[in-house]
Structure formats: C-alpha cells, structure tokens
Write a protein that binds this DNA or RNA. Structure first.
Lengths: 238, 238
DNA sequence: ACAAAAGTGTTGGAGATACACCCATGA
DNA sequence: TCATGGGTGTATCTCCAACACTTTTGT
C-alpha cells in the first residue's frame, strides 16, 4: 500500500516527455541519445533519451516536438506516443538524483513521463546538441549503455512498439521520410525485425498498400541497375 | 496527522487517471460512469468516467486502482493503460470549469490524464458511489451521453483498444473474470466487435489458446443443455 | 565482361471461412 | 414433447512461405 506523501516533504509531481528517435542508414538501426553536460568535478555525466518537462498549457505532442528540438535541433518529424511511465522511483537512482539537483528546482519531484518514438533516415537529420545536452549520439540499438533514469526500459518498450508497427506495415506511411527504394525499405524492415525477409514476398505485401506511391524517378549514381523510387502518402503531415 | 496532498495545491500541471470499465452481461456492453454531485443551485451535474488526481509518489497503475475504488467501490480488476491525454483545453468547457471551481483548489490547472481500461462481468461487481460521485451507472456503449471534459474522446479511444485486443484474442486472459461458457465468451466478442461470429470457427480459434482451462464444472439452472465452464489462466494476478 | 542489386511468378501448405445437424436439459 | 442453447466435422478458399533466374547499370 502506497504511503501518502505529506506537505512537509515538499514534493512535486511533474510531467515530462521522452523521445526515442530511431535512425537508420543502409545497414544500421540506431537511437538518438544525448550526453548530459558535466556539471561539477564529482558529477559523472550519463547518456539519456532526449526529454524534458512539459510546459503548463502545452499539448503533449507539441511538448515532445519542442523538447526534441531544444535538445537536438531536430524538428518536423512525426512523434508517436506509446506509453506513460510513472514509477515514483524512476528518477531516484543516485546518479539521477545528483543530476537533478543541479538542473532542477525540485530535484525530488515525482516525474511522470510520456514516451514518444519516431523513425528517420539518419542522413536526413543532423542533430546538434543544445540546452543541457552536451553531445548527441546515434547509438546502435544493440549497443546501448546504461542510461539515466528508467530510459533503458523506455527504450525497450519503444522498440517493441516499433517492431509491432513494422510487422503490420503500420510503420511505413506514418514514420518514414521522403523517397526510398524497395530494397532500402526491406533492409529497414530487416533491421527492425532483426531477421531476413524474402524479397519477392516483401514486395508483394508492400505493394498492396495504397499509400505506396511510385515516383517518376530512379536511383542515380549506383553501379548496378537503378531502382524505382517510391514515397509514402502522408495522411496528415504538419 | 497530515493529510495527503495532491499536486493541485502546489502546481498548475496536474496528473490524473481516468478509468474506462467496460461491463457486460449476456447481451449488453456497458461502461461504468459516475454522476457528479450537484454542488449548487446553478450547477448542472454531468456524467463522467471515474477519474481523479494521482498522488505524489504514487505509481500510475496503483493510482488507477485506488481512484476507481474510491469513486465506485470496485477493486481488484486488471486495468490496462492505453493512452495519455494532454490537450490543455480538455478541461476548459464551461460546465467543466464550473465543476472544477467547486471541487479543486486550482480549477484552472492543466490536467494531463492517463487512460486505463478494463472489462468485467457486470454481475461480479456492484459499484457503490462515494467521494465526489453521487451515483454510478452502467451505460450502454451505444447510448453514451455528453460526458465531462474530453471523456467521450477517451471512451472512444478505449473502445478501439478493446476491439483490437479482442480481435487478437489478447483480451481474454488479461481482462476476463472467473468462469464462463464458450457461448458467453462468443457473445462477448460479438458485442465488442459488433458483428456475428461463426460458432464452430470461434470455438476452434479460442480452443487453441492454452490459457483456456476447462473446469470440472457445468452450468446449472438453465433449461437447455448445460454448458462446460471454462476459465482463463491468469499470468500474473495481483 | 563482370559485379552488384533490381525486378519478376508459381507452387504447396496452413489457416480461415462457410455451412447443418444431433444433444442434454428444464419447462 | 418442445424450446433452447450446447456441441461437433468437412470442404473450400485465401493468404503466406519457399524458391531461381533475367535485367540494367557502372566499373
């Protein structure tokens, strides 16, 4: 049974958003992490997902976009909400507390966070650290270090959602950018699902989607047969 | 003795949970609503989903269970988180503001709410209104009135999730209570999905689930062939 | 000419769908 | 004995998985 918190403990309840931005190129699936600024001699900076408080009066989706932009400079991508994380101990690790004492007025607050994820071609975005992010890094999903707070758990959860969406071909028209070849799209699915797919079967299933639009354009500058380029129809781009 | 505080007293960004409890009997799918207490001459009470603030230091899942119990007396059911709603205007309707001014210290706070849903046999639970709920009602899903806040939207969203879970047979062992006949289970699926299902095919697909346990027990007191009773194995009951 | 990825159809099997009759009980 | 829902099997069809060769370009 939860012990009620009393006023004398001077605690707060805050809301944040955390963004899991998956990035891919032709053979890698990575996640965009930020590295915390080193704040003092004793402080050991950690890596973390880009995330920060929601403003009062701000919509959650907008907050996710704003926070991502403030910390990494990245904007204009579709962020999909996937889960809320509210364990009161999620920010109570020793390193986490140390960090929060330096950057927050209420370091002991209970912070509920709303998780968002997205998927982009890495080459289309060039993250630049700012605010309390010292650096940004694309880190391979198979090589994720210990992250701040419960961000490892949030990341695992996001990956599950990404895989489920990919299996159902929901991913593509919501989360994919610009134009691509079917080969690239297949590589992407293989990266996400972590298994090989049959080329002909993949093409059959993907071509059934009427969101898939063949462009009047072919690949150039490749030393093999150039591929048809495709795009996904965006339902509601902002 | 100090009383528990909620965020509302310290902050203007609050967190609440709202519970969408679907109830069924043999031919109806309903939702548990509460009716707000009438607070003054001019106040027009509305119906709403059971929901209230999360305490500081309280886990979201626990909060959902506590809040549901406080308002309706119902406890011990599996509540599944499905979405966070954070539109800053979601509590700014005129009637909503009027209500909040009477029951909250900071009626103008921005309230982010986390939606939970569940599914129960109505006969297994007997809701009793308390706290700021004046009454509780099981209301048919096809006959939902205008609700407080954005609760109509939350309810629609919950129904979508319920349907998706039902189609994939995820629903059953997570959200279903006690023992039932296959006929009842089929009726339930038909209610939720709003379409007829083939009896033999339904039984085939449902019998493949190894969470389905036949009990050493048959229906009694019915004036037709008594049905075998079944139960679902709970993975992790609390 | 060669290397590299693009592009293309058919077959077999598994799983989903359609469909009709007898059974056990209480009234 | 009748009304009511319980309970069962088969034939067809649709969807998914497996599989190999030709084409186009740059080097």
């Amino acid at each position: 049974m939860q012990r009620p918190i009393t006023v004398s403990e001077r605690n707060f309840l805050n809301i944040s958003v955390d963004c899991v931005v998956f990035g891919f190129d032709d053979n890698q699936l990575k996640v965009l992490l930020i590295e915390q600024d080193k704040l003092s001699e004793t402080h050991i900076p950690m890596s973390a997902l880009p995330g920060d408080h929601v403003y009062i009066g701000e919509d959650l989706d907008e907050a996710a976009n704003r926070v991502l932009k403030e910390l990494t400079g990245i904007q204009g991508l579709y962020l999909k909400q996937f889960h809320a994380f509210g364990n009161p101990d999620r920010t109570k690790g020793e390193k986490d507390s140390q960090w929060l004492r330096q950057v927050r007025k209420d370091p002991d607050a209970h912070i509920v966070t709303i998780g968002y994820y997205s998927l982009v071609r890495m080459e289309d975005f060039n993250p630049v650290a700012s605010s309390f992010a010292k650096n940004t890094d694309w880190v391979d999903v198979n090589d994720i270090p210990d992250l701040a707070f419960d961000h490892n758990e949030i990341l695992d959860y996001a990956l599950e959602h990404l895989r489920a969406d990919t299996e159902n071909n929901h991913i593509s028209f919501e989360l994919l950018p610009k134009k691509f070849t079917l080969g690239q799209l297949q590589q992407l699915h293989e990266l996400i699902l972590d298994k090989k797919l049959d080329k002909r079967n993949f093409r059959k299933s993907i071509k059934k989607l009427d969101e898939l639009i063949p462009l009047n354009e072919k690949q150039t500058g490749v030393y093999h047969k150039p591929a048809q380029l495709y795009s996904f129809e965006r339902n509601e781009d902002k």
